[in-house]
Write a protein that binds this DNA or RNA. Structure first.
Lengths: 147, 147
DNA sequence: TTTTTTAATGCATGCACATGCATTTATATC
DNA sequence: GATATAAATGCATGTGCATGCATTAAAAAA
């Protein structure tokens, strides 16, 4: 097999694994916690921050969403589920909106984290993810040798 | 760091890498070939098949889309770009629709493949993908040891 | 065996929704 | 006042879910 086909096939495997894990996570979070994967990420990043608060701008980059998508997601999350996050203005810069995780949000996050860990562990065990990933690394290394 | 945080962080790295590569590919394909990543996958899978034709159902599983999304994508692709694929009915089972890649489609695919390879190579070299991936593999191994 | 009925299958479509892009609004900085 | 920045908003698009339609397969009745 040519090295080009190799590269493409490896990328396809990589994509497939990501999609499978991602869909599985999303499906289970939806079923058990009525929560989106992106909503989980927002809670997680907020909770990980010492101050428990982040600007929408920062959050947007962490979650990997566009500015408008993050703005709307934050609004949805504030309204939904009895408010897992809260949107506050900054005193020093009133353009900014800062999102904080509420006590209820922390509680929900704890529950969700259990599910996420469980699901990831199970999926990792059953999928042949490591062979695909090793393959990916090998392709990358061989690319670098040929420079 | 706890093994649970380890698992989550590894998943986050994995997701981030996939998103970065995927966005980069999508952006460049859009700019150079006016083509979506999913459209590229459709052409690729059709071309890889010896018969050069696949049922929508099969295509749907390969590309990783829902049934409705695949149905619409195939229609868009038939209408767009002077028809890179063609939708035909089956004689033996008139419920099925089969997609075939046209000559024009094969030509386009060749062009696109060059870009995809180039982009993947470049992105792989610049990203710190292997540390993240090795991390992932380690996590999986340690999970299996603790069984 | 032929006909009739019931279930399954493959795809298309209405609908709701999350997302990105482009633009606007409000505030801050110069 | 002019420019820059953070977020909100209008709009278009792609997606999934639920549903409907046409066709095929399977089972029952004749």
């Amino acid at each position: 097999m040519s090295s080009e086909q190799n590269l493409i096939n490896t990328w396809l495997s990589f994509t497939r694994i990501h999609a499978e894990l991602s869909n599985e996570l999303d499906r289970i979070l939806q079923a058990r916690h009525q929560t989106t994967l992106n909503e989980f990420y927002v809670l997680l990043f907020l909770s990980k921050t010492p101050a428990k608060k982040l600007r929408l701008l920062e959050l947007q980059q962490l979650v990997g969403l566009s500015q408008s998508a993050m703005s709307r997601l934050s609004v949805r999350m504030e309204n939904k589920s009895c408010g897992v996050i809260q949107r506050l203005g900054y005193e020093d810069d009133r353009r900014g909106v800062c999102a904080t995780i509420t006590d209820r949000g922390e509680l929900r996050l704890k529950e969700i984290l259990t599910t996420v860990n469980e699901t990831l562990e199970k999926s990792l065990k059953t999928s042949d993810i490591d062979t695909a990933l090793k393959f990916f690394i090998n392709v990358k290394n061989s690319l670098q040798e040929n420079e």
